[in-house]
Amino acid sequence: MMGLLAQAALPPAALPARQKTVAVVIALVILVVILDLVRRRKLREEYAVLWLVTGILLLVVALNYGLLLWFTRLVGAVMPVSTLLFFGILFLLLVSLQFSVRLSTTTRRVKELNQRLALLEEELRVHLEERGPRPEGDLEGEEGPKGPAGP
């Protein structure tokens, strides 16, 4: 019992071979998936940045356990696992923040498009009216004094 506790309290000096293999494989899979998504244009390069950085960091840490230990001491954590969790959460925070910023931009752009569409529709309507009687297909379908009710 005491032995287990002592083992748990101290980080191992080196990563066991099996753990190392698993970590490297996971990191490689993440990197390949991200690069493939970018290749197939399913993921834009700008959004891939954070993911790529994470994948590379994971790979580096898996290959060089000493680096993780050094970093653990640097941030003042006790266990290397805490360091990993800490950076995992930090990464998720950054990704969410990036999405929120993007969403704000997109919202503004959608608004501007909607406004311009409204202006254009009216301009087109006035333009068509000035050109004389409207042809069969009414612009809005439901508008106009004698137009048929829209769907």
Partner: peptide, 25 residues
């Protein structure tokens, strides 16, 4: 029908957006 000019947003975006569309017009 009442003789006003009408601009229609495709979907509702809020009071402020409607005002701004009016300013743009």
């Amino acid at each position: 029908q009442a003789g006003a000019r009408v601009l229609s947003h495709t979907f509702g975006m809020g009071y402020g957006a409607a005002l701004q569309t009016g300013y743009l017009y």
